[in-house]
Amino acid sequence: MKIQGHMFNWLAGFILVVAIVYGVWSKEPVGTTALFLSFGLSIMIGYYLVFTARRVDTGAQDDKDADVADDAGELGFFSPHSWAPLALGLGSMFAFLGPVFGWWFLFFTAPLLVIGLWLWVFEYYRGENQTQ
């Protein structure tokens, strides 16, 4: 995980240089802002990955002499199937269509968003996935 963090940090440095050069030469605020925001997002992801790599065991991707089989085994906990992301995705899609058709459209999408969020938050408090 450490190498991925360093790659994002290198990418952030490159984007910062490009943002400065682009901003000075073009004097165009929208593209310059987008590049600086891309720099910020890249540096945040890189920092998170480097910070997390210090806390977890060294993975096979960080060892130059590792084989592919060294990374086999359990990778972590993944949630079981859930309908909540589908409900949230549809609700978000319809909510973003609200300004297109009219703000009244949001009144019909808000219940779908609330139901999806409720399902996602309380996913492990009911049914077969209920924790004791």
Rank of each mutant, 00 (worst) to 15 (best):
M1G: 04
M1F: 13
M1R: 05
I3S: 11
I3F: 12
I3N: 07
Q4P: 01
Q4D: 10
G5K: 05
F8I: 00
F8Q: 06
W10E: 01
W10A: 14
L11A: 12
L11N: 00
A12V: 00
G13N: 02
I15E: 01
I15R: 00
L16M: 13
V18C: 05
V18W: 04
A19W: 01
A19N: 03
A19V: 03
I20Q: 01
I20D: 02
I20E: 00
V21R: 04
V21A: 13
V21I: 15
G23A: 08
G23V: 04
G23S: 03
G23L: 05
V24G: 00
V24A: 12
W25S: 05
S26N: 06
S26H: 03
P29L: 09
G31C: 09
T32S: 12
T32Y: 06
T33Y: 06
L35I: 02
F36M: 10
L37N: 06
F39Y: 13
G40R: 04
G40F: 07
I43P: 00
M44S: 11
I45Y: 08
I45D: 00
I45C: 04
G46K: 04
G46R: 05
G46M: 04
G46Y: 08
Y47R: 04
Y47F: 11
Y48K: 15
Y48N: 12
L49F: 14
L49D: 03
V50M: 08
F51A: 13
A53Y: 12
A53W: 14
R54T: 08
R54W: 09
R55H: 11
V56S: 09
V56C: 05
D57Q: 10
D57K: 15
T58A: 09
D62V: 11
K64G: 05
K64Q: 11
D65Y: 14
D65H: 15
D70L: 12
D70G: 15
D71T: 12
D71E: 14
G73S: 10
L75F: 11
F78A: 09
S79N: 11
W83N: 08
W83M: 13
L86Y: 10
L88E: 02
G89F: 14
G89I: 07
L90E: 00
S92W: 05
M93L: 13
M93F: 13
F94P: 01
A95K: 06
A95F: 14
A95D: 00
L97H: 04
F101A: 07
F101D: 00
G102N: 07
W103H: 01
F105N: 09
L106D: 03
F107Q: 04
P111Y: 01
P111N: 03
L112N: 02
L112S: 02
V114R: 02
I115Q: 03
G116E: 03
L119S: 10
L119N: 10
W120Q: 06
W120F: 08
V121F: 06
F122A: 11
F122I: 09
Y125N: 07
Y125W: 10
Y125K: 13
R126V: 12
R126I: 09
G127D: 08
Q132D: 13
Q132R: 15
